[in-house]
Design a protein around this nucleic acid. Sequence first.
DNA 1: CCCGGCGATACCCGGCGGGTATTGATCCGG
DNA 2: CCGGATCAATACCCGCCGGGTATCGCCGGG
Lengths: 283, 283
Amino acid sequence: METRELRYFVAVAEDLHFGRAAQRLGIAQPPLSRAIRQLERRLGVTLLERTSRAVALTEAGAVLLREGRAALDSVDAADRRTRRAASGGPGLVLVTKAGAAADLLPGTLAGYAAQPGAVAVDVLLCGVGEQERLLRTGRADVALLHLPFDSVAGFDYEELGTQGQVAIVPAGHPSATLEKLTMAEAAALPGLPLPRWPNRDGSYPDGPGPQVRDTTQLLQLIALGRAAAVLPESCRLHLRADLATVPVPDAPPVTTVIAWPAHSRSLAVARLVRAAQAAMPRS
Amino acid sequence: METRELRYFVAVAEDLHFGRAAQRLGIAQPPLSRAIRQLERRLGVTLLERTSRAVALTEAGAVLLREGRAALDSVDAADRRTRRAASGGPGLVLVTKAGAAADLLPGTLAGYAAQPGAVAVDVLLCGVGEQERLLRTGRADVALLHLPFDSVAGFDYEELGTQGQVAIVPAGHPSATLEKLTMAEAAALPGLPLPRWPNRDGSYPDGPGPQVRDTTQLLQLIALGRAAAVLPESCRLHLRADLATVPVPDAPPVTTVIAWPAHSRSLAVARLVRAAQAAMPRS
DNA sequence: CCCGGCGATACCCGGCGGGTATTGATCCGG
DNA sequence: CCGGATCAATACCCGCCGGGTATCGCCGGG
């Protein structure tokens, strides 16, 4: 099975329309039809059920869509990492959510850079839920994630530490002076709904709160009195003056982990992981 | 990057000899040379350093060898799982080490099969250290592994339980009557060396003990008085009459886990995992 | 110094990927 | 009930590229 065939199939399976898929791929429709048929012939499997009005995935087609995406990600990763290994660029790319993990990132980078033989480390800040794909497609080598929000499925990782969560509210809000809040109370602050984070596919759940993609956005909204949020307590380290925090003892504790692709046995990654562990306050 | 190019490169990188690699691939040498050069041109990266007498990997080449193997595994997995999804075959393939996990396998299979909508489950017994590759190449969907011996790198998993280890010795051996052994004592039983298990690449470490690939082989050797072993205590359930066990309290505890590829969100896998958890004696 | 091994080059051929034009089936509006 | 619109499939052509054979150039060893 060639990656071209896989790319073609994934494109068709995604919008279930040969014409549009061909356009997206930059080829004409007939060659695309033929390529898919040939793929089906070679696999000996019907992947798509086509009537002349609609295209639908068979069960096997759904499997190939899922597995094919993963395979294409791996190929992408091989391509990108090879290019990076050659073209002197950054030796490592570390990715984390914008505005999160600010507590141990400086220490980790400094601790690693101080080691003999350390390579250049690029830091990539991305929106919520994007880290996994960046790791899987080779755009990044190592990520700082927060359990239980992010998934470490498919990666090796080391736990770095656990912290409680606090509610973030506008500084002038009545609740800012409270000693503590429960999750239920934080979710029901009048006029301050909790925000909605994107699902893995980029869509947003229904609900009253504003849609947000990163912490900076969110803090801005809170300062405007449009939302409240419950975040790991380390965010207090760099909090804006117009926001206040209230502990939420019954919120689930957040574990920060450092994760990397399982087959990456690179020395540089291993050293960076050690540096991150050393940068933890109490490890 | 096409999988054909990747396959070609991996072949050359593996034996560092264009002629032999071409033979293994079933093509002539010149097209192979040309394909590699073309891959290098397209990547803009030198992968191999060739003199007319020797071929060597560059640093980038080493990266592509590692990443390329992983990518090819993913593509293989997509192929195989798609074929299986279509051609009615077994719905799930569960893999475990021959002779291990015998305690909870029957209960798991029975518990799962009793559920409505259960699909056929094939059981694949393999040698030590082979499970990971079977999972990654789509030959299996779910594996029973034993930490800390096996690696769960790159997989999702659930812990099923923890057990101590016992020494296995021939029934007539003087040590068979002891109440317990330390690891050090078990390793130094006169005339009964501990066996050598294969590394991940299939090679064996140096040492005095016999080389073994699975538990059946090992038990046979112990019965012959050629070896001793330290194994999880669940192996007592189906122990041959000519063998005896002695607890080894200071051996590291063994955790049995059920693991599956991270992106496999299949309902069947989820149900089988639940059945395995339910089959545990005290979970 | 010549031979043997090995990768690169030169050259040819056939198949396949891609394009255009058209057909055929199905749904929808009048 | 018919005609147009939509969309995948088919037919057919072309040029590129993957594969083969023959040969060269480089280098190390006897």
